[in-house]
Design a protein around this nucleic acid. Structure first.
Lengths: 112, 112
DNA sequence: TCCATTGCATAAGAATATTATGTATGTTTG
DNA sequence: CAAACATACATAATATTCTTATGCAATGGA
């Protein structure tokens, strides 16, 4: 991801959540969508993206359909039932993470 | 850190911010403090902690003083002027990260 | 025609973590 | 009093996840 070390570990969560909401997407589309939503801050490199998509597929969290758009190959990924369960866990972890980081790092600003 | 992948990449930020606020601390103390503040969620392993402390010292962001508490050695770490500057950057990055993660992953709940 | 973009993929290397050890002292508990 | 647990440092082997570099191939614009 960008110049920010903090992004490490969040790629799978981002992909799963996005596919859980947007329906099926292909790899390149994911990079563009994430970049747009994050105002150019989350730049997913191919070297990170494709191995992660393959891994999530191997874990049964995503499924794939290969299609041709003209002469161009696209591999559309969709979230599986197991993937949907995983998203719930991941989101809970994200909320915990954010909450704990804020209490650790912003002791003065306390969220109710 | 714990079972949560998201913690990856945040260790240096946690250490720097904590030392920036609490003054000097020794390694073991940092692990206990972080664990307490995060309600048991942030468990820093020794294999991650000590190499990171050495690295931050090598980068000139922390300084060390070795002292004896009875017969036990303690290495107290303090933040340097350069470390203080780095904390400012890290906190800005953390805020960006949290903001973008929220807009990406919680599109319905929009923070003002 | 050349360069940027779209679209996939992998390999080499760096960074950061876990797990497993090792050394040593102090404290608590059966 | 012995065993277990806590304190306190450290490193090595391994795993994970990332960046950077490279490769192939089609498309589209200057």
């Amino acid at each position: 991801m960008g110049s920010n070390q903090l992004y490490k570990g969040s790629l799978a969560t981002i992909i799963l959540k996005l596919l859980g909401e947007q329906g099926r997407m292909y790899g390149y589309q994911i990079t563009q969508e994430v970049k747009a939503i994050s105002e150019g801050e989350f730049v997913i490199t191919e070297g990170a993206l494709y191995p992660m998509l393959h891994k999530l597929e191997a874990q049964g969290l995503l499924s794939v359909e290969t299609e041709m758009a003209g002469n161009r190959m696209r591999k559309y990924y969709s979230i599986t039932p197991n993937g949907k369960k995983e998203v719930v866990n991941r989101m809970a972890e994200l909320e915990d993470f954010i909450r704990h980081m804020q209490s650790l790092l912003n002791p003065k600003i306390d969220l109710a």
